[in-house]
């Protein structure tokens, strides 16, 4: 602010802090009158406030722009992509249920096959009803393994003795004589 004759510079700088309130008509009457008195003698401040009014009006009249026609469509796509990232698992885990179920089925099939195969392949087991009644709480497994599930150590011992291989006396290497005296001959 240039210093003018009869008008100390400090007045202009101090009054300038109120220019905005003056434009917004938010200045108390006393201050407003003080400013207008100043404008009547300070042409520079008078010109400044005049230009400020024009600029304020120009800012309000700046042309308004609008978003592009596909704005909302693009936004929905962005939201969809954002939802995908947060809702779904990363690609390696996308369809985890299918391989898991497949694996379970394969595992179950193999297990059943092994169990079934084990009971039918051993042809040396005699097809004789068991003479011992085992505890229902400990179900008997088929084949020779069943011998180890006896209820007492003594029974186990007897079973072992009774199932002795009689290779020498009969010349057959796959013959067995069980506890009840029945001999079975395998096909080996």
């Amino acid at each position: 602010m240039k210093k003018r004759k009869g008008l100390p510079m400090i007045d202009c700088d101090k009054l300038r802090t109120n220019f905005s309130d003056y434009l917004d008509e938010e200045l108390p009457i006393e201050q407003r009158k003080e400013l207008e008195d100043h404008f009547s003698v300070c042409l520079e401040c008078q010109e400044t406030i005049r230009q400020m009014k024009i600029i304020q009006r120009s800012l309000k009249q700046l042309p308004q722009i609008s978003v592009s026609p596909d704005f909302e469509q693009k936004l929905h796509q962005q939201i969809f992509r954002a939802n995908q990232k947060t809702t779904f698992l990363p690609p390696p885990f996308h369809n985890w249920k299918i391989p898991a179920m497949g694996s379970a089925i394969v595992l179950a099939t193999v297990s059943l096959f092994l169990v079934f195969n084990d009971s039918t392949e051993d042809k040396s087991v005699p097809v004789v009803p068991p003479t011992k009644i085992y505890s229902p709480a400990a179900p008997q497994l088929p084949g020779n393994k069943s011998m180890n599930i006896s209820t007492t150590e003594e029974e186990s011992s007897n079973s072992y003795q009774s199932s002795t291989l009689v290779r020498d006396s009969l010349g057959a290497d796959s013959s067995l004589i069980d506890k009840s005296g029945v001999m079975t001959v395998g096909n080996k």
Binding site: R16, T17, N18, F19, S20, D21, L23, L43, Q46, E47, T48, R50, Q51, M52, I54, I55, Q56
Partner: peptide, 27 residues
């Protein structure tokens, strides 16, 4: 806010006064 608006308006006036200046004799 009020202080910044005032200073912003004054700065704009300073930068744009060449657009709105009038000849001294036409004021």
């Amino acid at each position: 806010v009020k202080s910044r608006v005032n200073r912003g308006r004054l700065k704009l006036q300073e930068d744009l006064k060449f657009l709105y200046e009038t000849e001294p004799n036409t004021r």
